[in-house]
Design a protein around this nucleic acid. Structure first.
Lengths: 209, 209
DNA sequence: GCCGATAGTGTCAGTAAGTGACACTTGGCG
DNA sequence: CGCCAAGTGTCACTTACTGACACTATCGGC
């Protein structure tokens, strides 16, 4: 079960190359013309592959756009599991998330794709959908960390949903509003605010609106 | 601008009836056969209207399914604005959300539609999309309540995204996991946990996995 | 009560996503 | 070489959704 580092055979490697090529082509086209304006025919065409074949690699147009986002979630999961066991949940999760985002932050391809996703509401929502599909995994890890049963206690689920869904969404909204701070910094900030609790008291009336 | 309670004319009323009829028909069909298995032709047909006309009332199939969800968000917005100004943000938002959900909780139609949405990932995602579109409104209200500028301070946005996106998602996940508690109760609980902060310390190792 | 502007609807033709069936090509292997 | 199966292309099809244009029914003024 562990030994699988063998060179995977010529066929397998070709398949992998096709997959990568499709992702690259899709990203390039999405960045150039936008998500909606790009057709499957174009993506497939620019890799010299039939549209039918595209759908043998990706279940939908969204799928190819979110391939990297999926990898990112997986990476956060792994980093979360690797944190020292005595850390409070959100602290561990924050550290994991920030670590992962730091890794991607230098990747130009990642950034332009990030923009493509942020700009398109349907894509943004689809990313949340992907995240939702993995709540159970995060909740399970969080529950173990807290020493509670994630089936009996709603808190691990809440932590998972906030981390996988609210935090990235907030970051996107915040960026879209014109604040160009680094993703990792915004993420760290969001987690810290969540740690402290969100029930801010009423303040003095603010001038203007 | 205030006087608009006039009987809106025969034409307008007919339009409204068609809209309601389409929503009802769609809901019935969705509940009976599921979202994907229901076609626009069926919905339009059962109201004796052309498919083209359907798209003059709703921009998409999702749109008709989420018509009620939109109303719900609007209701929460209004209830939030109506809360006493000296309440802490999350407390006010929690009260508003619980009030609204209580209202809908007795509506059988709402419940079956809720199930239709939860069961379909694409619909769930679309609902998140709708919620995301209204972050700015909630953030603005929250900012005013906190006495801070929602453009300069990320906290109102965080509150908005958690309330509109993470909380309902958690509730759905929690229900899907088999816990049949009332929506309003789960929502209240989620808000209370958020108020207290989520950074739970590491606990003793839990038996089982 | 007639009549013209206009809102609402139907018809038709078209694009694009996504799927199933089947035939073909090509890598892996005796 | 020649077989098997994975991978791919082709074709035909369904369905969501859109634009153009013609038709019908309401509403306003006369």
């Amino acid at each position: 079960m562990l030994a699988a580092m063998e060179k995977p055979g010529l066929r397998e490697r070709k398949k992998q190359r096709t997959r990568e090529a499709l992702i690259d082509a899709a990203q390039a086209l999405f960045c150039a013309h936008g998500f909606d304006a790009t057709t499957i025919d174009q993506i497939a065409g620019s890799v010299e592959v039939s549209p039918r074949t595209f759908f043998r690699y990706f279940t939908s147009k969204e799928d190819v756009a979110l391939a990297l986002a999926d990898d990112q979630i997986t990476a956060v999961l792994e980093a979360f599991a690797a944190q020292p066991a005595d850390l409070p949940v959100l602290t561990a999760l924050r550290t994991a998330a920030v670590e992962v985002i730091r890794t991607y932050e230098t990747d130009a391809r990642f950034h332009s794709l990030q923009d493509v996703i942020s700009v398109n509401p349907a894509l943004t929502a689809a990313r949340v959908e992907r995240a939702t599909a993995r709540f159970a995994e995060v909740a399970s890890l969080a529950g173990a960390r807290m020493g509670v049963d994630p089936v009996a206690d709603p808190r691990p689920y809440l932590v998972a949903s906030v981390a996988l869904c609210a935090v990235p969404t907030t970051v996107v909204a915040w960026r879209a509003a014109g604040h160009q701070a680094a993703e990792s910094e915004l993420t760290r900030q969001a987690f810290d605010l969540l740690s402290a609790g969100l029930d801010y008291p009423a303040g003095p009336a603010v001038a203007g609106r």
